[in-house]
Simulated assay, not measured.
Amino acid sequence: MTTQFVKLTNPTSSHVEAFNKWDNDPYLIPLTRPNKNKAELERRDNMTLTDLTNRLEHHHIYLIYLNDQLIGEMNYMVDPGHLYKKESGTAWIGVTIGENEGRGKGIGFMAIQYLENQIMAHGHNRIELGVFEFNTQAQKLYHKLGYKVIGNIDNFTFWQDKMWTDIRMEKYL
């Protein structure tokens, strides 16, 4: 098993196709984006090549490959408005293992460690993230990597006919 992380600098239509597949996957939607109600949960969106290119203005995006197959992406942005703890120079991270073949193999663990190293290399020493309360597998991963809970935002996302809390976590590098 060979895992590679590659910074996305020149998006292509095949990247857009993969991102759209993951962004519209019914299994991934409740894990990767907040939804205010059932209609939002069921909403499907498609980005364009221009959308993905524009996203690079605010996000550092890294592609995750397993044995030369694109299986996911990870990204960070610095000082977004949705930080729970407004501390200058904070990186907000997101990781999506979009393909089933990449799940349960420790790739998320390696991906976050890689992302942390990239964030440190760019001069940032704090990371914040949000994880939905029902995503216990991700919570275990973040705790294992040294992330600490700093707060909760109640009634944050809709899934399984009810509202759930967003757990905010941080780590100093």
Score class of each variant (00 low, 15 high):
G81W: 09
I97H: 03
F109P: 03
L31S: 10
P26M: 02
L52P: 02
G123V: 04
T3C: 14
Q118H: 13
A91M: 03
R55S: 12
L52A: 08
M77C: 13
E133S: 15
M74L: 05
F5G: 13
T48L: 01
H124Q: 07
L129G: 06
E17D: 12
N152D: 12
I93L: 15
A121N: 15
M1F: 12
A18S: 13
H143R: 13
T32L: 06
H60I: 13
G104T: 12
R103H: 03
M169V: 01
F158P: 00
T2I: 15
W159P: 11
G104E: 09
G89D: 10
R103P: 07
T12W: 04
T48C: 02
G98L: 08
V6K: 08
A138H: 02
D51E: 11
M47C: 08
T53E: 06
L141V: 14
P11G: 01
Y62G: 02
G130E: 14
F5K: 08
N35L: 04
S88Y: 06
Q113F: 07
M47A: 04
D166L: 10
Y84W: 15
N35C: 14
Y142T: 06
N125S: 12
K7M: 15
V78L: 05
N152Q: 09
L145N: 02
L115S: 09
N46V: 14
P80V: 00
L52V: 15
P80F: 00
G123I: 14
L145C: 04
L56N: 00
N117G: 14
Q69R: 10
D68T: 00
T157Y: 03
V6F: 01
E57C: 04
L52Y: 09
G130C: 03
Y76F: 11
L66N: 06
D51I: 00
K144W: 00
S13H: 05
Y65S: 03
L31R: 06
Y84C: 07
T9Y: 11
S88F: 08
F132D: 13
H143P: 14
L28T: 01
R44N: 11
D25K: 09
L31W: 04
L41A: 10
N54T: 11
F156D: 10
G146C: 08
Q4G: 05
P30Q: 03
L145R: 01
V78H: 06
F134K: 06
D45V: 13
G94A: 03
K85W: 08
Q118E: 15
N10I: 07
V78N: 05
I167D: 05
M120N: 09
L31T: 15
K36L: 12
L66W: 05
H82Y: 10
V95R: 10
Q4I: 13
D161Y: 07
I61W: 03
Q160G: 08
T32Y: 02
N37C: 10
D166N: 12
L115C: 10
T157G: 01
K105Q: 14
D23F: 07
L66M: 12
R33I: 11
S88N: 11
I97K: 07
P11N: 02
F134W: 12
L129S: 06
F109I: 02
V131Y: 06
